[in-house]
């Protein structure tokens, strides 16, 4: 297995606030193989975006405490020189954000924003950079790129803007692309186009991809592996098939049950997970999910509320963090 292109070991991210320390990510360990697509799913506040920004180095160092190791192709991102890390942003690794309108600078032409991205990392003339920008726009399926390159973001539709963001992220041929909810802010019809585009481009370029989403449809379509996060922890990890067909953690089961299915019965009701996401300042004792868990009766004693379960093997290439797997009564 080539599970070593991106390796995250025991990542801890916390933000000191007036109310206490927010532990956004608590001991996250992950790896992504070269050319693979990993989906990170979870509800708001589960730590998925923070993890992505920690990889990219976009968290404000003055307001954040980061611990652990993030190895990208052998380079320790948290330990290396900040200047070296900056030079890797946009070239070795790139990122696409949720809202393409607010993510593009409203005052600059899209072409100029692309040209800027090219010229940070490549020693080329403005003219060559412009040619690359136009090619980049053509590659993401923007019609008439020679003209569109001089448009301002407000002159483009939402889907077009996200295509521009993708073009900008890919323009220096990054080995790792992180997409943070790339389709959430788009119309449903456009969502599918963007998902297809990203998959096409990945096949062409072989870029390793991390897709952060709460759209389980996107996950099923794009991802090789899925990582389910809850309360700043990985609670389940495995191949997409394994996690979809044999979810081994009650939270994952709840997540899957709360998605409407086209093949479901007409009068079938959705089954939401009760309760609210946990406080990251004072997380619940034991298993972070236990206050909302509907299956904890199956675990003897008060194990769930006192001891935090480890990530244990739930099958081939499949791990989950649940006492049911070790202590549960079938």
């Amino acid at each position: 297995m080539s599970h070593d292109f991106l390796q995250i070991n025991d990542l801890r991210v916390s933000f000191p606030t007036d109310d206490g320390v927010v532990r956004a990510v608590s001991g996250l360990t992950l790896s992504v193989g070269r050319g693979e697509t990993l989906a990170i799913v979870g509800e708001s506040g589960s730590g998925k975006s923070v993890t992505a920004q920690a990889i990219m180095g976009l968290l404000n160092p003055l307001a954040t405490e980061i611990d652990g190791r993030i190895l990208l192709d052998g380079v320790d991102l948290l330990a290396c020189d900040p200047e070296h890390r900056r030079s890797m942003r946009g070239s070795a690794m790139a990122m696409i954000f949720q809202d393409p309108l607010s993510s593009l600078h409203p005052f600059y032409r899209v072409g100029d924003q692309l040209i800027e991205a090219v010229r940070i990392h490549q020693d080329v003339t403005k003219k060559e950079a412009r040619t690359q920008a136009i090619d980049g726009l053509r590659r993401v399926g923007i019609p008439d790129p020679e003209r569109r390159v001089d448009d301002y973001p407000h002159q483009l539709s939402g889907g077009m803007r996200q295509r521009v963001m993708i073009a900008m992220a890919l323009i220096n041929g990054p080995q790792l692309l992180i997409a943070d909810e790339p389709t959430t802010a788009l119309d449903v019809t456009v969502q599918a186009q963007i998902t297809d585009l990203m998959m096409d481009l990945q096949q062409q370029t072989g870029t390793t991809m991390i897709v952060i989403t709460h759209d389980l449809g996107v996950v099923a379509e794009m991802a090789d592996h899925v990582c389910v996060m809850y309360g700043g922890r990985v609670v389940e990890y495995g191949t997409t098939d394994a996690v979809y067909y044999r979810p081994s953690m009650p939270y994952t089961r709840g997540l899957l049950a709360s998605v409407p299915r086209l093949d479901g019965a007409y009068d079938e009701h959705l089954d939401p997970i009760p309760g609210n996401p946990p406080s990251l300042i004072r997380p619940p004792s034991g298993c972070v999910f236990h206050p909302r868990c509907r299956e904890r009766e199956a675990v003897p004693g008060d194990l769930c509320s006192t001891v935090e379960p480890d990530l244990v093997t739930a099958g081939p290439d499949h791990r989950a963090r649940c006492h049911l797997l070790t202590e549960g009564t079938p």
Partner: peptide
């Protein structure tokens, strides 16, 4: 705090350029 500032950083721009060209102008 704007998203496009995060984009500018994600591109790998030096902080000085982020401030001068992207934040200050906005």
């Amino acid at each position: 705090g704007e998203d496009y500032i995060r984009t500018a950083r994600a591109k790998g721009l030096p902080e000085r350029t982020v401030i001068r060209k992207h934040a200050l102008r906005a």
